[in-house]
Computed example of a mutant assay.
Amino acid sequence: MSADKTTISVNRDVALRFAKLARELGISIQKAATEALTAAEEILKDGENPTHLLYLYRVFKAKSSTDSLSLPLHLLAKIFEELETGRYTTLFYEAGRELGSVLAQWLSFQDLVKTPQILKLLLPVRTAQCRVEENNARFTLIFPPNIKRLIPLIVAYLRGIFDAYGYTQHKAEQREHVLDIVVYNCIQ
């Protein structure tokens, strides 16, 4: 073997599927494997699990199919200063349900529970955590302080996402810019 190559052991089925896909796409297996390991290395440097990269890609695909737009929070908060947020709750719920329906095709609800950071890709949250309590999931989300007024709309959006997964029993509590939302009977 040359000095710039090495051999690693991986799950045989994964290796076979990977090689087959690379061949079908006309990509060098060595090049594809090197690029995949380079991406995984970057994730590991941040102390994360490389599976998070897969979740990121799946969320990107789901989000891309729902015509969503990332907008600077201070602009959105400014717009809603002049609007009655309650008028938009149903629209935010429906948008969340639409995204949740697509997202559920790519990620299980258990993926959200295990990796609540996924919600950082969907919401303007600084910190996302999840604790399992009996068969319930308690998500704690910390938002930038300047968007407290938008949190009821975000709650509606989350309710839509959770409902799309089939978990329609949930309770949300807001303390300043912190949101606790408990999803009941969702842990098998």
Rank of each mutant, 00 (worst) to 15 (best):
T66M: 01
I79A: 13
S68Q: 08
K61M: 06
S68P: 00
P72C: 02
P72M: 01
K61G: 04
F60L: 11
T89H: 11
G86W: 03
A62Q: 00
R58P: 04
P72F: 06
L53E: 03
H74S: 13
F92V: 00
K61A: 09
L69V: 15
I79W: 08
A77G: 05
A62M: 01
L83G: 01
L76W: 07
L76H: 06
R97V: 02
R97K: 10
L71I: 14
L54E: 10
A95H: 09
L73Q: 07
Y55T: 00
L73M: 14
G96P: 03
E81G: 14
S70M: 13
A95C: 07
R97W: 06
L56R: 11
T66R: 02
S65P: 01
T85R: 05
E84S: 09
L69Y: 14
A77P: 03
K61I: 11
Y88H: 09
R97Y: 12
R58Y: 06
L71S: 03
R87F: 13
E84Y: 09
T89S: 14
L56D: 05
L71F: 13
E81M: 07
K63A: 15
P72E: 04
R97P: 02
P72S: 01
Y55I: 00
L73R: 05
L73T: 14
A77E: 15
L53H: 07
E81W: 02
L53A: 08
I79D: 11
R58S: 05
K61Q: 12
Y55C: 00
G86Q: 09
L83Q: 06
H74K: 13
T66P: 00
G96K: 01
R97M: 04
T66V: 14
L83D: 02
Y57K: 03
A62T: 03
L83E: 12
E84Q: 11
Y55K: 00
S64D: 12
L71C: 05
L53F: 07
D67R: 11
G96H: 02
Y55R: 00
K78M: 15
L54F: 12
E84C: 04
L53P: 00
A95Y: 04
E81H: 08
S70G: 11
H52E: 12
L75H: 13
E82F: 11
F60A: 15
L53N: 04
D67Q: 13
L83R: 06
L54K: 08
P72N: 05
K78P: 10
F80A: 07
L75N: 13
Y55G: 00
F80I: 05
H52R: 15
A62Y: 02
K78W: 09
R87T: 15
H52N: 12
H74T: 14
A95T: 05
E81R: 09
S68C: 07
E81A: 11
R87G: 05
R58A: 06
Y57D: 03
L69C: 12
F92T: 00
S64A: 10
V59E: 04
Y93G: 03
L56F: 10
T66E: 03
S65F: 06
H52D: 08
T89G: 10
